[in-house]
Design a protein around this nucleic acid. Structure first.
Length: 427
DNA sequence: TCTGGGGTCCTAGGACCC
DNA sequence: TCTGGGGTCCTAGGACCC
Protein backbone atom coordinates (compact mmCIF):
# COMPACT_ATOMS: atom_id res chain seq x y z
CA UNK A 1 0.00 0.00 0.00
CA UNK A 2 1.26 3.41 -0.87
CA UNK A 3 1.90 5.52 2.14
CA UNK A 4 0.23 8.82 2.56
CA UNK A 5 2.39 11.55 1.11
CA UNK A 6 2.19 15.27 1.60
CA UNK A 7 4.16 17.86 -0.31
CA UNK A 8 5.15 21.29 0.92
CA UNK A 9 6.41 24.12 -1.22
CA UNK A 10 8.51 26.68 0.60
CA UNK A 11 8.98 29.84 -1.44
CA UNK A 12 10.86 32.97 -0.39
CA UNK A 13 8.93 36.21 -0.61
CA UNK A 14 10.50 38.69 -3.07
CA UNK A 15 13.69 36.71 -2.67
CA UNK A 16 16.30 39.05 -4.15
CA UNK A 17 14.80 42.03 -2.37
CA UNK A 18 14.70 40.12 0.91
CA UNK A 19 18.39 39.24 0.52
CA UNK A 20 19.27 42.90 0.06
CA UNK A 21 17.22 43.89 3.08
CA UNK A 22 19.10 41.55 5.43
CA UNK A 23 22.11 43.83 5.28
CA UNK A 24 20.38 47.10 4.41
CA UNK A 25 17.54 47.44 6.92
CA UNK A 26 16.89 50.97 5.67
CA UNK A 27 15.23 49.25 2.69
CA UNK A 28 12.46 47.81 4.89
CA UNK A 29 8.97 49.09 4.07
CA UNK A 30 10.26 50.89 0.99
CA UNK A 31 9.49 50.10 -2.65
CA UNK A 32 12.54 48.09 -3.72
CA UNK A 33 13.24 46.43 -7.06
CA UNK A 34 16.15 44.28 -8.23
CA UNK A 35 17.20 44.55 -11.87
CA UNK A 36 18.31 41.98 -14.42
CA UNK A 37 21.81 41.95 -15.87
CA UNK A 38 22.78 45.20 -17.52
CA UNK A 39 20.34 46.90 -15.17
CA UNK A 40 17.81 46.17 -17.90
CA UNK A 41 14.49 45.37 -16.32
CA UNK A 42 12.90 44.58 -12.98
CA UNK A 43 13.10 40.90 -12.05
CA UNK A 44 12.15 41.02 -8.36
CA UNK A 45 9.97 43.51 -6.50
CA UNK A 46 8.93 44.16 -2.94
CA UNK A 47 5.23 44.31 -2.15
CA UNK A 48 5.48 48.10 -1.82
CA UNK A 49 6.86 48.20 -5.36
CA UNK A 50 4.03 46.03 -6.63
CA UNK A 51 1.54 48.40 -5.05
CA UNK A 52 2.97 51.24 -7.15
CA UNK A 53 1.90 49.26 -10.20
CA UNK A 54 5.38 48.17 -11.24
CA UNK A 55 5.55 44.71 -12.76
CA UNK A 56 8.21 42.11 -13.31
CA UNK A 57 9.72 42.83 -16.71
CA UNK A 58 9.27 46.59 -16.67
CA UNK A 59 12.36 48.27 -18.20
CA UNK A 60 14.40 50.23 -15.69
CA UNK A 61 14.77 53.31 -17.87
CA UNK A 62 11.00 53.76 -18.11
CA UNK A 63 10.31 53.78 -14.38
CA UNK A 64 13.40 55.48 -12.92
CA UNK A 65 11.90 58.97 -12.67
CA UNK A 66 8.56 57.76 -11.41
CA UNK A 67 10.27 55.84 -8.60
CA UNK A 68 12.31 58.81 -7.45
CA UNK A 69 9.07 60.57 -6.61
CA UNK A 70 7.91 57.64 -4.51
CA UNK A 71 11.14 57.04 -2.63
CA UNK A 72 11.67 53.80 -4.53
CA UNK A 73 15.02 52.07 -4.86
CA UNK A 74 16.38 50.00 -7.76
CA UNK A 75 19.38 47.71 -7.27
CA UNK A 76 21.57 45.76 -9.67
CA UNK A 77 21.36 42.01 -9.19
CA UNK A 78 23.99 40.53 -6.91
CA UNK A 79 23.91 36.81 -7.63
CA UNK A 80 26.90 36.09 -5.45
CA UNK A 81 24.90 37.26 -2.45
CA UNK A 82 21.64 35.55 -3.45
CA UNK A 83 23.34 32.23 -4.10
CA UNK A 84 24.95 32.25 -0.69
CA UNK A 85 21.74 33.15 1.16
CA UNK A 86 19.89 30.49 -0.81
CA UNK A 87 22.37 27.80 0.26
CA UNK A 88 21.85 28.75 3.91
CA UNK A 89 18.07 28.52 3.58
CA UNK A 90 18.20 25.12 1.90
CA UNK A 91 20.46 23.84 4.62
CA UNK A 92 18.08 25.06 7.31
CA UNK A 93 15.13 23.39 5.53
CA UNK A 94 16.87 20.01 5.61
CA UNK A 95 16.01 19.56 9.26
CA UNK A 96 12.27 19.50 8.53
CA UNK A 97 12.50 16.64 6.07
CA UNK A 98 15.37 14.77 4.46
CA UNK A 99 13.19 14.51 1.35
CA UNK A 100 14.04 17.92 0.00
CA UNK A 101 14.15 19.08 -3.59
CA UNK A 102 15.89 22.36 -4.28
CA UNK A 103 13.67 23.52 -7.07
CA UNK A 104 15.14 26.95 -7.75
CA UNK A 105 17.24 29.56 -6.05
CA UNK A 106 14.31 30.55 -3.84
CA UNK A 107 12.03 27.51 -3.73
CA UNK A 108 12.15 24.01 -2.29
CA UNK A 109 9.74 21.10 -2.17
CA UNK A 110 9.61 18.98 0.96
CA UNK A 111 7.95 15.58 1.14
CA UNK A 112 6.42 14.18 4.32
CA UNK A 113 5.12 10.68 4.80
CA UNK A 114 2.40 9.69 7.26
CA UNK A 115 2.23 13.04 8.91
CA UNK A 116 -0.95 13.84 10.87
CA UNK A 117 -2.73 16.52 8.89
CA UNK A 118 -3.81 18.58 11.85
CA UNK A 119 -0.12 19.30 12.48
CA UNK A 120 0.48 20.88 9.10
CA UNK A 121 -0.46 24.40 10.01
CA UNK A 122 1.85 24.30 13.00
CA UNK A 123 4.65 22.83 10.92
CA UNK A 124 4.25 25.57 8.33
CA UNK A 125 4.47 28.26 10.99
CA UNK A 126 7.57 26.63 12.42
CA UNK A 127 9.29 26.55 9.02
CA UNK A 128 8.49 30.23 8.51
CA UNK A 129 9.74 31.26 11.92
CA UNK A 130 12.95 29.26 11.55
CA UNK A 131 13.96 30.78 8.22
CA UNK A 132 13.02 34.25 9.42
CA UNK A 133 15.05 33.95 12.62
CA UNK A 134 18.07 32.10 11.32
CA UNK A 135 18.53 33.79 7.96
CA UNK A 136 16.21 36.77 8.01
CA UNK A 137 14.19 35.97 4.91
CA UNK A 138 10.37 35.75 4.93
CA UNK A 139 8.95 32.62 3.28
CA UNK A 140 5.50 31.27 2.43
CA UNK A 141 4.55 27.62 2.85
CA UNK A 142 1.90 25.68 0.92
CA UNK A 143 0.83 22.08 1.54
CA UNK A 144 -0.90 19.76 -0.91
CA UNK A 145 -1.28 16.10 -1.80
CA UNK A 146 0.64 16.75 -5.06
CA UNK A 147 3.39 19.14 -6.01
CA UNK A 148 1.03 21.08 -8.26
CA UNK A 149 -1.47 21.53 -5.40
CA UNK A 150 1.33 22.53 -3.01
CA UNK A 151 2.30 25.21 -5.53
CA UNK A 152 -1.27 26.46 -5.59
CA UNK A 153 -1.50 26.43 -1.79
CA UNK A 154 1.67 28.50 -1.70
CA UNK A 155 0.11 30.99 -4.05
CA UNK A 156 -2.88 31.33 -1.74
CA UNK A 157 -0.53 31.78 1.23
CA UNK A 158 1.27 34.60 -0.58
CA UNK A 159 -1.84 36.29 -1.92
CA UNK A 160 -3.97 36.50 1.21
CA UNK A 161 -2.44 38.03 4.31
CA UNK A 162 -5.07 36.36 6.48
CA UNK A 163 -3.24 33.06 5.91
CA UNK A 164 -0.18 34.45 7.66
CA UNK A 165 2.00 32.84 5.04
CA UNK A 166 0.85 29.24 5.49
CA UNK A 167 -1.91 27.42 3.59
CA UNK A 168 -2.86 23.77 3.54
CA UNK A 169 -4.89 22.26 0.70
CA UNK A 170 -4.69 18.61 1.81
CA UNK A 171 -8.28 17.33 1.94
CA UNK A 172 -9.40 20.88 2.40
CA UNK A 173 -13.10 21.66 1.97
CA UNK A 174 -12.08 24.84 0.14
CA UNK A 175 -10.18 22.97 -2.58
CA UNK A 176 -12.92 23.35 -5.26
CA UNK A 177 -13.28 27.02 -4.39
CA UNK A 178 -9.55 27.62 -4.68
CA UNK A 179 -9.36 25.76 -7.99
CA UNK A 180 -12.27 27.79 -9.36
CA UNK A 181 -10.49 30.97 -8.25
CA UNK A 182 -7.21 30.07 -9.96
CA UNK A 183 -6.95 31.01 -13.63
CA UNK A 184 -5.32 28.39 -15.84
CA UNK A 185 -2.59 30.92 -16.64
CA UNK A 186 -1.36 30.62 -13.07
CA UNK A 187 -1.12 26.84 -12.88
CA UNK A 188 2.40 25.48 -12.59
CA UNK A 189 3.14 23.89 -15.97
CA UNK A 190 0.65 25.94 -18.00
CA UNK A 191 2.43 28.73 -19.84
CA UNK A 192 1.20 31.51 -22.10
CA UNK A 193 0.61 29.36 -25.16
CA UNK A 194 -1.38 26.64 -23.47
CA UNK A 195 -3.33 29.13 -21.37
CA UNK A 196 -4.47 30.85 -24.56
CA UNK A 197 -5.42 27.52 -26.10
CA UNK A 198 -7.40 26.53 -23.00
CA UNK A 199 -9.25 29.85 -22.83
CA UNK A 200 -10.26 29.56 -26.45
CA UNK A 201 -11.71 26.15 -25.60
CA UNK A 202 -13.73 27.59 -22.73
CA UNK A 203 -11.43 26.30 -19.99
CA UNK A 204 -10.63 29.29 -17.83
CA UNK A 205 -9.81 28.04 -14.35
CA UNK A 206 -8.06 25.12 -12.65
CA UNK A 207 -11.34 23.50 -11.64
CA UNK A 208 -12.45 23.33 -15.26
CA UNK A 209 -9.10 21.89 -16.35
CA UNK A 210 -9.23 19.26 -13.61
CA UNK A 211 -12.58 18.14 -14.99
CA UNK A 212 -11.52 18.03 -18.61
CA UNK A 213 -11.36 14.77 -20.54
CA UNK A 214 -7.85 13.30 -20.07
CA UNK A 215 -7.27 12.08 -23.66
CA UNK A 216 -8.18 15.50 -24.98
CA UNK A 217 -5.72 17.13 -22.60
CA UNK A 218 -2.99 14.70 -23.61
CA UNK A 219 -3.62 15.34 -27.27
CA UNK A 220 -3.48 19.11 -26.88
CA UNK A 221 -0.79 19.44 -24.22
CA UNK A 222 1.26 16.21 -24.35
CA UNK A 223 1.81 14.02 -21.32
CA UNK A 224 3.19 17.03 -19.48
CA UNK A 225 -0.19 18.73 -19.52
CA UNK A 226 -1.90 15.47 -18.62
CA UNK A 227 0.29 15.08 -15.55
CA UNK A 228 -0.54 18.60 -14.44
CA UNK A 229 -4.26 17.93 -14.88
CA UNK A 230 -4.12 14.71 -12.89
CA UNK A 231 -2.16 16.44 -10.16
CA UNK A 232 -4.98 18.97 -9.84
CA UNK A 233 -7.19 15.97 -9.05
CA UNK A 234 -4.87 14.86 -6.28
CA UNK A 235 -3.15 12.11 -8.25
CA UNK A 236 0.57 12.55 -7.67
CA UNK A 237 2.50 12.21 -10.93
CA UNK A 238 5.53 14.39 -10.31
CA UNK A 239 7.72 13.12 -7.53
CA UNK A 240 10.37 15.19 -5.83
CA UNK A 241 13.85 14.89 -7.27
CA UNK A 242 16.41 14.74 -4.54
CA UNK A 243 19.50 13.82 -6.52
CA UNK A 244 20.93 16.69 -8.36
CA UNK A 245 20.65 15.47 -11.92
CA UNK A 246 23.84 15.89 -13.90
CA UNK A 247 23.67 18.91 -16.17
CA UNK A 248 22.87 18.32 -19.80
CA UNK A 249 24.08 21.66 -21.04
CA UNK A 250 25.86 24.72 -19.77
CA UNK A 251 25.10 28.12 -21.24
CA UNK A 252 27.01 31.31 -20.78
CA UNK A 253 25.77 34.42 -22.50
CA UNK A 254 25.07 38.02 -21.72
CA UNK A 255 23.85 41.11 -23.45
CA UNK A 256 26.46 43.77 -24.06
CA UNK A 257 26.48 47.00 -22.08
CA UNK A 258 26.26 48.78 -25.46
CA UNK A 259 25.87 47.65 -29.08
CA UNK A 260 28.97 46.01 -30.54
CA UNK A 261 29.81 45.60 -34.25
CA UNK A 262 33.51 44.93 -34.17
CA UNK A 263 34.52 41.32 -34.72
CA UNK A 264 37.43 41.58 -32.32
CA UNK A 265 35.26 42.82 -29.47
CA UNK A 266 32.67 40.13 -30.02
CA UNK A 267 35.37 37.53 -30.09
CA UNK A 268 36.67 38.81 -26.75
CA UNK A 269 33.25 38.68 -25.12
CA UNK A 270 32.64 35.22 -26.51
CA UNK A 271 36.02 34.09 -25.18
CA UNK A 272 35.19 35.44 -21.73
CA UNK A 273 31.84 33.60 -21.62
CA UNK A 274 33.55 30.51 -22.91
CA UNK A 275 36.13 30.65 -20.09
CA UNK A 276 33.25 30.98 -17.61
CA UNK A 277 31.30 28.08 -19.09
CA UNK A 278 34.27 25.71 -19.04
CA UNK A 279 35.01 26.73 -15.43
CA UNK A 280 31.48 25.74 -14.57
CA UNK A 281 31.99 22.48 -16.43
CA UNK A 282 35.08 21.65 -14.38
CA UNK A 283 33.48 22.66 -11.10
CA UNK A 284 31.07 19.75 -11.63
CA UNK A 285 33.77 17.37 -12.85
CA UNK A 286 32.18 17.19 -16.28
CA UNK A 287 33.59 17.17 -19.76
CA UNK A 288 31.81 18.33 -22.95
CA UNK A 289 32.22 17.42 -26.58
CA UNK A 290 29.89 19.85 -28.30
CA UNK A 291 30.06 23.61 -28.40
CA UNK A 292 27.51 25.97 -29.90
CA UNK A 293 27.96 29.68 -30.50
CA UNK A 294 25.08 32.09 -31.03
CA UNK A 295 24.83 35.81 -31.60
CA UNK A 296 22.00 38.22 -32.17
CA UNK A 297 21.21 41.88 -32.79
CA UNK A 298 18.84 43.91 -30.60
CA UNK A 299 15.34 42.79 -31.52
CA UNK A 300 13.78 45.83 -29.86
CA UNK A 301 15.46 48.16 -32.34
CA UNK A 302 13.13 47.43 -35.19
CA UNK A 303 14.56 50.22 -37.33
CA UNK A 304 17.98 48.51 -37.51
CA UNK A 305 18.79 45.51 -39.69
CA UNK A 306 18.30 42.32 -37.71
CA UNK A 307 20.39 39.18 -37.71
CA UNK A 308 20.59 36.14 -35.46
CA UNK A 309 22.38 32.90 -36.08
CA UNK A 310 24.10 29.99 -34.42
CA UNK A 311 26.41 27.14 -35.35
CA UNK A 312 28.01 24.28 -33.54
CA UNK A 313 30.97 21.97 -33.72
CA UNK A 314 32.27 18.90 -31.94
CA UNK A 315 35.58 18.37 -30.25
CA UNK A 316 37.53 15.27 -31.27
CA UNK A 317 37.48 14.08 -27.65
CA UNK A 318 35.42 15.28 -24.68
CA UNK A 319 37.33 17.91 -22.78
CA UNK A 320 37.27 20.47 -20.00
CA UNK A 321 40.47 22.13 -21.13
CA UNK A 322 39.64 25.76 -21.77
CA UNK A 323 41.95 26.33 -24.76
CA UNK A 324 40.22 23.49 -26.65
CA UNK A 325 36.96 25.40 -26.37
CA UNK A 326 38.42 28.82 -27.08
CA UNK A 327 39.84 27.58 -30.37
CA UNK A 328 36.58 25.85 -31.31
CA UNK A 329 34.43 28.83 -30.31
CA UNK A 330 36.42 31.25 -32.44
CA UNK A 331 36.24 29.06 -35.51
CA UNK A 332 32.47 28.73 -35.08
CA UNK A 333 32.09 32.47 -34.55
CA UNK A 334 33.75 33.05 -37.94
CA UNK A 335 30.96 31.03 -39.52
CA UNK A 336 28.11 33.00 -38.01
CA UNK A 337 29.52 36.53 -37.77
CA UNK A 338 28.36 38.98 -40.45
CA UNK A 339 29.83 42.40 -40.97
CA UNK A 340 27.63 45.49 -40.67
CA UNK A 341 25.28 44.66 -37.81
CA UNK A 342 25.02 46.09 -34.32
CA UNK A 343 25.11 43.08 -32.07
CA UNK A 344 23.43 42.93 -28.69
CA UNK A 345 24.36 39.52 -27.40
CA UNK A 346 26.69 36.63 -27.93
CA UNK A 347 26.84 33.34 -26.09
CA UNK A 348 28.19 29.84 -25.93
CA UNK A 349 26.51 26.57 -25.04
CA UNK A 350 28.35 23.40 -24.08
CA UNK A 351 26.47 20.17 -24.63
CA UNK A 352 27.01 16.43 -24.70
CA UNK A 353 28.19 16.55 -21.13
CA UNK A 354 29.39 13.57 -19.16
CA UNK A 355 31.35 12.93 -16.03
CA UNK A 356 35.07 13.20 -16.69
CA UNK A 357 35.62 9.61 -15.53
CA UNK A 358 33.15 8.33 -18.14
CA UNK A 359 34.68 10.01 -21.16
CA UNK A 360 35.29 7.43 -23.87
CA UNK A 361 38.89 6.55 -24.63
CA UNK A 362 40.40 7.46 -27.94
CA UNK A 363 43.06 5.33 -29.53
CA UNK A 364 44.96 8.29 -30.89
CA UNK A 365 44.46 11.05 -28.37
CA UNK A 366 44.86 11.11 -24.61
CA UNK A 367 41.69 11.85 -22.64
CA UNK A 368 41.32 15.00 -20.65
CA UNK A 369 42.17 13.11 -17.48
CA UNK A 370 45.21 11.34 -18.85
CA UNK A 371 47.58 14.04 -19.93
CA UNK A 372 48.62 17.18 -18.16
CA UNK A 373 45.62 19.25 -19.24
CA UNK A 374 43.52 18.52 -16.18
CA UNK A 375 46.43 19.33 -13.89
CA UNK A 376 46.97 22.66 -15.60
CA UNK A 377 43.28 23.56 -15.34
CA UNK A 378 43.01 22.54 -11.69
CA UNK A 379 46.01 24.68 -10.92
CA UNK A 380 44.52 27.75 -12.63
CA UNK A 381 41.15 27.23 -10.92
CA UNK A 382 42.83 26.99 -7.56
CA UNK A 383 44.79 30.20 -7.99
CA UNK A 384 41.70 32.06 -9.17
CA UNK A 385 39.70 30.76 -6.26
CA UNK A 386 42.24 31.88 -3.70
CA UNK A 387 43.42 35.12 -5.23
CA UNK A 388 40.31 36.37 -6.98
CA UNK A 389 38.38 35.65 -10.12
CA UNK A 390 40.37 36.00 -13.35
CA UNK A 391 43.73 36.64 -11.69
CA UNK A 392 44.85 34.15 -14.30
CA UNK A 393 42.99 34.32 -17.57
CA UNK A 394 43.48 34.14 -21.33
CA UNK A 395 44.75 36.77 -23.73
CA UNK A 396 41.70 36.26 -25.96
CA UNK A 397 39.30 37.82 -23.46
CA UNK A 398 40.87 41.23 -24.03
CA UNK A 399 41.81 43.97 -21.62
CA UNK A 400 39.43 46.89 -22.10
CA UNK A 401 36.26 44.83 -22.25
CA UNK A 402 34.07 47.67 -23.44
CA UNK A 403 31.27 45.17 -23.93
CA UNK A 404 30.97 44.46 -20.19
CA UNK A 405 27.49 44.70 -18.74
CA UNK A 406 26.36 47.54 -16.61
CA UNK A 407 25.79 47.06 -12.89
CA UNK A 408 25.63 50.56 -11.58
CA UNK A 409 23.67 49.95 -8.41
CA UNK A 410 25.39 46.86 -7.10
CA UNK A 411 25.35 46.07 -3.38
CA UNK A 412 28.45 44.62 -1.67
CA UNK A 413 29.12 40.89 -1.44
CA UNK A 414 28.11 40.92 2.21
CA UNK A 415 28.66 37.24 2.89
CA UNK A 416 31.26 35.99 0.44
CA UNK A 417 34.06 38.54 0.30
CA UNK A 418 36.23 39.39 3.30
CA UNK A 419 36.62 43.03 2.29
CA UNK A 420 32.86 43.49 2.00
CA UNK A 421 31.59 41.78 5.13
CA UNK A 422 29.70 44.37 7.17
CA UNK A 423 31.27 45.30 10.50
CA UNK A 424 28.91 46.00 13.37
CA UNK A 425 30.50 48.21 16.01
CA UNK A 426 29.69 47.35 19.61
CA UNK A 427 28.23 50.20 21.59
C1' DT B 1 21.22 55.61 -23.95
C1' DC B 2 18.10 51.86 -22.05
C1' DT B 3 13.98 45.56 -22.58
C1' DG B 4 17.89 38.89 -18.59
C1' DG B 5 20.13 34.59 -18.19
C1' DG B 6 20.09 29.75 -17.49
C1' DG B 7 17.86 25.61 -17.50
C1' DT B 8 14.43 21.10 -18.55
C1' DC B 9 11.38 17.97 -21.02
C1' DC B 10 8.63 16.26 -25.02
C1' DT B 11 7.61 15.39 -29.86
C1' DA B 12 8.06 14.88 -34.72
C1' DG B 13 10.70 13.70 -38.46
C1' DG B 14 14.73 11.93 -40.83
C1' DA B 15 18.56 8.64 -41.17
C1' DC B 16 19.86 4.26 -40.62
C1' DC B 17 19.63 -0.67 -39.40
C1' DC B 18 17.98 -5.48 -40.02
C1' DT C 1 -4.22 -3.63 -57.18
C1' DC C 2 0.28 -3.59 -54.99
C1' DT C 3 5.86 -1.14 -52.96
C1' DG C 4 7.50 -4.16 -45.03
C1' DG C 5 7.66 -3.31 -40.45
C1' DG C 6 9.78 -2.63 -36.93
C1' DG C 7 13.46 -0.69 -34.06
C1' DT C 8 17.01 3.12 -32.51
C1' DC C 9 19.40 7.32 -32.56
C1' DC C 10 19.84 12.08 -33.51
C1' DT C 11 18.32 16.81 -34.10
C1' DA C 12 15.45 20.84 -34.27
C1' DG C 13 11.83 23.17 -32.47
C1' DG C 14 8.44 24.25 -29.18
C1' DA C 15 6.63 24.26 -24.75
C1' DC C 16 7.59 25.14 -19.94
C1' DC C 17 10.15 26.75 -15.40
C1' DC C 18 12.56 30.35 -12.18
Amino acid sequence: MKRHEIFALVDCNSFYVSCERIFQPQLENKPVGVLSNNDGMVVALSSEMKKLGIKRGDPAFKIGNFLKKHDGVLLSSNYTLYGNISARIMQALQQFSPDLEIYSIDEAFLRFTDLPEQDLDLLGKKIRATIQTWIGVPVSVGFGSTKTLAKIANRVAKKFSSTEGVYNLCDHPNLPKVLKWLEVDNIWGVGRKYAKMLHSNGIHNAWQLANTDYPWVKKQMTVVGLRTTMELNGISCIDIEMDIAPRQEIVSSKSFGKPVSDYQEISEALSAYCVRAVEKLRSQNLVASQIMVFLTTNRFKKELPQYANYALTRLPVPSAYTPDFLIAARSVLKQVYREGYEYKKVGVMLADLMHESQAPLDFFAPTYLDDKRKDIMDCIDKINKEMGRDVLTYAGVGVEQNWQMRREMLSPRFTTCWQEIPIVKAK
